[in-house]
Design a protein around this nucleic acid. Structure first.
Lengths: 205, 205
DNA sequence: GGCGCATGTATCGTCGTGATACATCGCGCC
DNA sequence: GGCGCGATGTATCACGACGATACATGCGCC
């Protein structure tokens, strides 16, 4: 999840850890920004895996080991890996945060994958809604007033999210009405200025 | 946070860990139920602190060590501790989960503390709203369409939550219009069938 | 001249999660 | 008659994120 977001951002341009975190915050909604406590370990892991490089600006040979600014840059392998991540759905894509991260890079995501993600997320939220709904109608009467209020508010929110997702899905479908043909190669519906390159489209085995 | 919720539930009646988790889930909203991985360690911690007891049903002296059903029960000290927790606000009371937990036990919470919690939570959510709002008006135009959509939906939700909290606050105030007198002892406004006993009302030092 | 604030890198203890393991019991179903 | 399956029930562990903290630099502003 963090891997995905970091690669996505570094694919746009090289960055410092600090700026990365700010961009992450802007992307995922100000609150819900990862802390450095997870960001730096992630960067190191990504560097070890070869997806990114870490340009440490030649340490001035002074007496104290300076803590230099480090610029992180995506590698060719990293782009390849990102393209794979963008093309698959993965189980995290439907929870709150994972969905947010996927949505943030929808412009680089194949149109059919976009639909899969939106529909999966909607299914997930509908389950929440139904669970909440039946819990309320079962126990609603003998629930504490405040607890009931909380659950009703939660039900409302979740209900609105389902409607929002439905709108997104519909607009996604109307902009891409070729649901019919089911042609052999579902090719990338992506803008030409995209940085990533897509692997071959693959059928489910 | 978990401590608080567990003590609150055990204050109503003794329970197994399993049932505790179910009640927790019902209370906090089905999703957002703590896993056993945090529940059992918490129970052990609470038992060590003396807030609860752990009734292990005398192991049948058979060859294999049976894993018996354990009934957890709140102690007198636990009730005292719970009353303290209920009377103070604490910094977790304003985040999503902490607030939910506090709300779930509002019936056992002093009316003035209720107001503090509601208002603190509202302030928190207003900050989120304003941050989101200004981020959107600053960068809204050059934002990805999907990202903007996500942030606008988030802003909507947060906005509605503020309004919801305002309603709760107003109804809280109207049911307790003695905001005026500022009499020496802010006494418990609590139903007589409550299990907890309140410590002396204390003025801020 | 110094104060505070944004920039910038980094670590650590704490805590919750999600997966997993294991065990018992009642129920339906063939 | 026995078989499986889902609910009940207790428990652990690796992993990952958080929040606090530390430290350093450069910049503007009064």
């Amino acid at each position: 999840m963090l891997d995905f977001a970091v690669l996505g951002l570094l694919n746009e341009s090289p960055m410092h850890g600090y700026e990365l975190r700010k961009r992450l915050a802007a992307l995922l909604g100000a609150f819900r920004a990862f802390s450095y406590g997870s960001l730096y370990p992630t960067l190191r892991r990504l560097a070890e895996a070869g997806w990114i490089t870490e340009d440490a600006p030649l340490d001035a040979p002074g007496p104290r080991a300076r803590r230099g600014k480090r610029v992180y840059r995506i590698t060719a392998e990293g782009k390849e890996h990102l393209a794979e991540l963008l093309a698959e759905v993965g189980p995290d894509a439907f929870d709150e945060d994972g969905f947010g991260a996927r949505l943030a890079f929808f412009a680089s995501t194949r149109s059919d994958v976009r639909l899969q993600i939106l529909e999966g997320r909607r299914r997930r939220v509908e389950e929440q809604r139904d669970g909440l709904r039946s819990a309320l109608s079962r126990a609603g009467e003998r629930l504490d007033r405040y607890t009931r209020e909380l659950h009703e508010h939660g039900l409302d929110s979740v209900d609105r999210e389902v409607r929002w997702l439905t709108e997104l899905i519909e607009s996604e479908r109307s902009e891409r009405p070729q649901t019919r043909p089911r042609s052999g190669s579902e090719r990338a519906a992506v803008r030409p200025d995209e940085h990533v390159t897509y692997p071959e489209s693959r059928e489910e085995p």
